[in-house]
């Protein structure tokens, strides 16, 4: 595609036309749509984030128990750690999207 004055003039005209056509109302509408998208994205994420940390923690605990023949103690120890990691995931997911 050819760059240069031709394209610049086109960009300017495009900008002017967009401004004329949309105005501030359209902009706030777009902002609202993007915040709604964020909210849906967050809703989709939060539940799974928490469960995933728990699953990983329990699997690690179970594996270490198998390794050291300490069943079920390490798994029990890992459950609160997994819960904490799940909450950490939630906080991180919620914080990122603001």
């Amino acid at each position: 595609m050819s760059e240069g004055p031709d394209k610049k003039a086109f960009e300017q005209r495009l900008q002017a036309a967009e401004d004329a056509a949309q105005g501030p109302a359209r902009e706030s509408e777009a902002k609202q749509a993007s915040s709604a998208r964020r909210a849906i994205e967050l809703a989709m994420r939060l539940g799974v984030e928490m469960v995933a940390a728990m699953v990983i923690a329990v699997v690690i605990g179970w594996g270490l128990d198998k390794l050291f023949h300490t069943s079920p103690w390490l798994m029990i120890v890992m459950v609160p750690v997994g819960m904490a990691a799940g909450i950490r995931n939630l906080l991180r997911a919620a914080g990122k999207s603001e």
């Binding site: 994420r45 699953v55 990983i56 990691a85 950490r88 995931n89």
Partner: peptide, 12 residues
């Protein structure tokens, strides 16, 4: 906790 949180990424 941080390590488990990191490892849980592919699962979630």
């Amino acid at each position: 906790i941080e390590i488990i949180s990191y490892l849980s990424r592919p699962v979630s």
